[in-house]
Amino acid sequence: MASRPYRIGVVGASSLLGKELGDELGESLLAASTVVLLEDDEEVAGQVTSAGEEAAFIQKIEPAAFEGMDFVFFAGDADSTKRHWQQARRAGASIVDLTYALEEEKDALVMAPWVSDAQSSAKREPDLKTPAVIAAHPVALMLALVEERLEAGIGVKGLAATVMEPASEHGRAAMDEMHQQTVSLLSFQNVPKELYDAQVSFNILPILGENAKVKLARTGQRIRTQYAQLTSGSAPLALQMLQAPVFHGYAVSLLVDLAKPVTVAEVESALQGEHVDLVSDDGEPPSNLSAAGQEDIMIRIVDDFGDAERGTRFWLWMAADNLKLAALNAIACAVELRRLRPSGKVQ
């Protein structure tokens, strides 16, 4: 049997997340693959874009679009995922859902391969009967990775997180509305509120308007559920969502209550490792701006016990590029799924 590269489809290739995913695929372990960019929207189909450093055409999803594909990433909107994922599944592709449309699908599996080692005894592995994997929400990944490392090195009694959501998490339309609100406010005009049903520019809100299409409560529940799945619920999580007036990047204020008194240096030692960038007191604190384009989760640690040398409560200020983190996690999921198919062999 002749060897061949994988064939990968990206549905929703013109979305912010789809574009990020296409770029990251070109730098990943799947870089030798043939990447096909797909869209439902006929107006977008035919446009020239890029996948990594290669120019590529966005193709319209046709009945035979998924034939011969090994992996299909769904990175557009939930409705498109629901319309086409079964078609891709029947064609024999492994499905990676970045839209959360398949959360309620029986036997679908939430995955965050970076969070795996300490939870290996409870970790559910995908198999040939797994209909799809859902790439974990970036914040669920951030929190679970911190909990995993602190639990393994010290022990964790509980976590309390305040999560600041950026507009880009909900695509170009949300970014455009926040931008238009800013322009309108500066020119003393009425602000558009189609998506948020509230003024989010120059504002921080725990609840959006009654008719908002962006649902903070739903996102918060998704993070709680996925965090529990990734960590087996070993350390309880309290969580509050806030809509932040920023376009890009998650910021999280996290209070951790540890099982025994330790120093800041011991917490830093427990958190060190791949995918984490520890920022010292001497450096610029993590922010949504400094995290933009960065692959790692940026973390700064401050104790919450005054003049004592050791204590159990610590504040972690974290920031991450939400689109890049989501794309990298989705690719890590696909890399894990490679073991379920004959590596590079024509079937």
Rank of each mutant, 00 (worst) to 15 (best):
I154A: 07
M142L: 12
W85K: 02
T162A: 13
L98C: 13
E39H: 12
R124P: 05
L289H: 03
V133M: 03
E125T: 06
L37N: 14
R7Q: 11
G293K: 05
H137M: 04
V264T: 08
V279K: 11
R339T: 11
M142Y: 10
A75K: 01
R124M: 12
S120C: 10
M69Q: 12
G273V: 07
V146D: 03
G249M: 04
C333T: 00
R90E: 15
A332G: 11
G22F: 09
P261C: 06
D307Y: 08
A132W: 06
E165F: 05
L159P: 06
D304I: 03
G18R: 08
A167K: 09
G155V: 05
L21M: 07
G249Y: 06
C333Q: 02
A93F: 05
T225S: 15
M318I: 14
R218T: 14
L278Y: 13
L16T: 03
R7E: 08
P126I: 07
I223K: 00
S116K: 11
L109F: 13
W315V: 13
E104H: 10
R89G: 02
V256F: 00
L239S: 03
R83S: 03
G306M: 12
D304V: 11
K215W: 11
L289K: 08
S287K: 04
R83T: 04
D107C: 04
L255E: 14
A91P: 04
D307G: 12
K260E: 14
R339Q: 09
T312R: 15
G92M: 09
H137F: 09
Q189T: 02
V110T: 15
D117N: 04
Q59C: 05
A173W: 04
F305D: 04
G171E: 13
A51F: 10
V96C: 06
L254T: 02
S14Y: 11
A51E: 09
K260L: 13
Q59M: 11
M111T: 01
L255W: 06
V163E: 11
L289Q: 07
V214K: 03
D79W: 10
L128I: 10
A65D: 14
S269A: 13
Q294H: 01
L150V: 07
L145K: 01
L37H: 15
A198E: 15
S15N: 01
E268F: 00
I299M: 03
G233F: 08
D77A: 07
V346Q: 02
G220K: 15
S121L: 15
A161H: 07
K157S: 01
D303G: 11
A135F: 02
F305E: 00
E20P: 06
A136K: 00
V191E: 11
R4L: 06
L255F: 02
E284F: 06
H275V: 04
V156G: 05
D79T: 08
A332W: 01
A101G: 02
K19F: 01
W317R: 13
P261Y: 04
